[in-house]
């Protein structure tokens, strides 16, 4: 079966104007600008098959968003090719966009001053959806994503979590075969993140949607995706299953305790203090040595705390670990 999204030897370079050094140079550069070339993506290849949910991760500036933009037909590659359902996003943009859904966490795709429901109506027209089909789909998604009265409120009045749920519904309305999610949970609280991850996973499962997700949040990747592609400096450095990544690289948890107590001696193997400040203690637990539950219980017995949270290590740490291992 041909891949839903195929990226072959894809590269993208940007020409950046060199800044002037001094007044004389400024005058000179005004007439003869000089440029340097930045390689954002360098000869990457991967295939995504129908129904796959893939995390595309890497540190800031690694080339994730550039790749997604090329796959969506926004940016043209400098070399290589992308195909979505066998179509070229560069020359067949309109056909490709009908099969695509996209959410860019830091950008709103809804009409800011209109109620979200009106934005959905407009999108139904843009995607040429028959009225009956649109209404059924909208009602189903609105119920799944618990939009309720949110639909009648202008987007500018919604909280970030509410807006993000609307953005995702907007991207799913036309039942896309491929869904690009670029930082869909950025800035959301723990509850909102959990809800969005669950809904994205469930909806993608039901519709058989291929998902390409970028995020700095390990939780997004673990809870939504089955496979992970790690990119750094524009090159793919790892492509494997989430199970494999978890086994090899996500071996630690971070426990943050808000307390005024002094850090106690834990005496547990694989647990170490990362940060000790007057109101906050952060410990790292190697879960392959001591289970997270055991370590947290021991910690809570020894300090009186006002709040506690358990998190995965930041994505940058994981990428650093992958990078260090590959270099070694």
């Amino acid at each position: 079966m041909p891949p839903t999204l195929s990226v072959q030897n894809l590269s993208k370079s940007f020409k950046i104007r060199k800044p002037a050094a001094g007044l004389r140079d400024l005058w000179h550069r005004l007439w003869k600008p000089e440029y340097r070339t930045v390689d954002a993506v360098r000869d990457i290849s991967f295939d995504l098959h129908a129904g796959e949910r893939v995390a595309f991760i890497g540190p800031n500036g690694a080339g994730k968003s550039t790749t997604i933009k090329m796959a969506a037909g926004i940016l043209y590659p400098s070399a290589g090719r992308v195909s979505v359902l066998g179509l070229d996003p560069q020359t067949q943009r309109r056909q490709v966009t009908r099969a695509l859904g996209a959410v860019f966490g830091q950008r709103s795709q809804l009409w800011y001053h209109l109620p979200a429901g009106d934005s959905f109506d407009l999108l139904a027209k843009i995607y040429d959806m028959p009225d009956a089909l649109y209404r059924t789909r909208r009602d189903y998604l609105a119920q799944s994503f618990e939009l309720g009265d949110i639909l009648s409120r202008p987007v500018r009045q919604l909280s970030l979590g509410q807006r993000m749920r609307c953005e995702i519904v907007a991207s799913l309305l036309h039942k896309p075969q491929v869904l690009f999610l670029d930082e869909p949970t950025i800035g959301l609280d723990v509850d909102a993140k959990a809800k969005i991850r669950d809904l994205v996973r469930r909806t993608a499962d039901e519709d058989g949607t291929t998902v390409l997700l970028t995020s700095h949040d390990t939780g997004d990747i673990e809870q939504v995706c089955d496979r992970v592609i790690v990119i750094d400096n524009g090159q793919i450095i790892l492509d494997e299953s989430i199970g494999g990544l978890r086994q090899r690289y996500i071996k630690t948890k971070r426990v943050t305790v808000h307390t005024t107590d002094a850090p106690p001696e834990l005496g547990l193997p694989g647990v170490a203090w990362l940060e000790q400040s007057p109101h906050r203690l952060v410990a790292e637990i190697d879960t392959s040595i001591t289970p997270a539950g055991t370590a947290v219980a021991a910690l809570l017995q020894r300090v009186s705390c006002t709040d506690v949270s358990v998190e995965d290590p930041p994505m940058d740490d994981i990428v650093r670990r992958i990078y260090a291992e590959r270099r070694a």
């Binding site: 969506a72 926004i74 966009t97």
Partner: peptide
């Protein structure tokens, strides 16, 4: 100015 214009290109209009 926000760069949002690029993201409009992900739609068939």
């Amino acid at each position: 100015l926000s760069g949002n214009i690029a993201y409009h290109l992900t739609r068939p209009v």
